[in-house]
Amino acid sequence: MTDYDVLRVFCGPRGGYGNELGVVREGSVLPEREERQAFAAKLGFSETVFVDDPERGVIDIYTPGVRLPFAGYPCVGAAWLLDVPELVTPAGVVGARQDGEFCWIEARAEWAPPRTLKQYPTAAEVDALPVPPPGEWIYAWAWEDESAGRIRARGFPGRGDGIDEDEATGAAAILLTEQLGRALNITQGAGSQLLTAPQPGGWVELGGRVYLER
């Protein structure tokens, strides 16, 4: 069995929740895309990262079904684990920094995979949503406190690959931040926390807490 770490990314203030991420630190043990895709499917996490160069931060990201040029929570988790100033992804170079209990990355919204951002009138309506049938990737959200930038969100990948709901979705948070043009404090899923802030030149910062599960 290939060795891998399991992180929880975008944990809540008390360390709970977060989205589980698989990280294969020695990507060379599975060099082919087909091998990596099969291993990501076997692990069954929303995303799995393969590290191809830990010093330069070169990574490769897979869902159980597809390879992604960029994804938010895998980049935050990998940046925390590798403790590097940047990550190299197929989409581009992702800036990274540690700030106390938070790990931050800086990326561009156009790197994010397509998401349907669907606003609801209240957080209670978002909480009550059933899992939709497979189809488009839906990021359902509502203001909890608009003046404070606090948002309630849930993510439904719609892929039919066994991931009915995504506990914390960094790429969608980046897209929503670009759309709204302001810093956000997002509670997603059962209680994960994502922080964002728009930056000059079309960049968006995305931050959260990361813990090593095993």
Score class of each variant (00 low, 15 high):
Met1Pro: 13
Met1Asp: 06
Thr2His: 06
Gly12Trp: 07
Arg14Gln: 15
Gly18Arg: 12
Glu20Ile: 00
Glu20Lys: 12
Val24Tyr: 00
Val24Trp: 00
Arg25Thr: 13
Ser28Gln: 15
Val29Ser: 11
Leu30Ser: 05
Pro31Gly: 09
Phe39Cys: 04
Ala40Thr: 07
Ala40Pro: 05
Leu43Gly: 01
Gly44Phe: 07
Glu47Cys: 10
Val49Pro: 04
Asp52Ala: 03
Asp53Cys: 02
Pro54Ser: 04
Glu55Thr: 12
Arg56Gln: 15
Val58Arg: 15
Val58Tyr: 00
Ile59Glu: 08
Thr63Lys: 04
Leu68Lys: 06
Phe70Glu: 02
Ala71Met: 12
Gly72Asn: 05
Tyr73Arg: 14
Leu81Pro: 01
Asp83Phe: 01
Thr89Asp: 13
Pro90Phe: 08
Gly95Lys: 12
Gly95Cys: 13
Gln98Ala: 15
Asp99Arg: 09
Glu101Arg: 10
Cys103Ala: 12
Arg108Asn: 08
Arg108Asp: 09
Ala109His: 13
Glu110Trp: 11
Trp111Ala: 05
Leu117Ser: 02
Gln119His: 09
Pro121Glu: 14
Ala123Leu: 03
Ala124Thr: 04
Ala128Ile: 02
Leu129Trp: 05
Leu129Tyr: 07
Pro133Gln: 12
Pro133Lys: 12
Glu136Val: 04
Tyr139Met: 03
Glu146Phe: 11
Ala148Gly: 03
Gly149Ala: 10
Ile151Pro: 02
Arg152Leu: 00
Phe156Met: 05
Phe156Lys: 07
Gly158Leu: 06
Asp161Arg: 01
Gly162Cys: 09
Asp164Phe: 11
Ala168His: 06
Ala168Val: 07
Gly170Thr: 08
Ala171Asp: 06
Ile174Lys: 09
Leu176Trp: 13
Glu178Tyr: 07
Gln179Tyr: 07
Gln188Asn: 04
Gly189Met: 08
Ser192Ile: 00
Ser192Lys: 05
Gln193His: 15
Gln193Glu: 14
Gln193Trp: 11
Leu194Thr: 09
Gln199Met: 14
Gly202Asn: 07
Glu205Val: 00
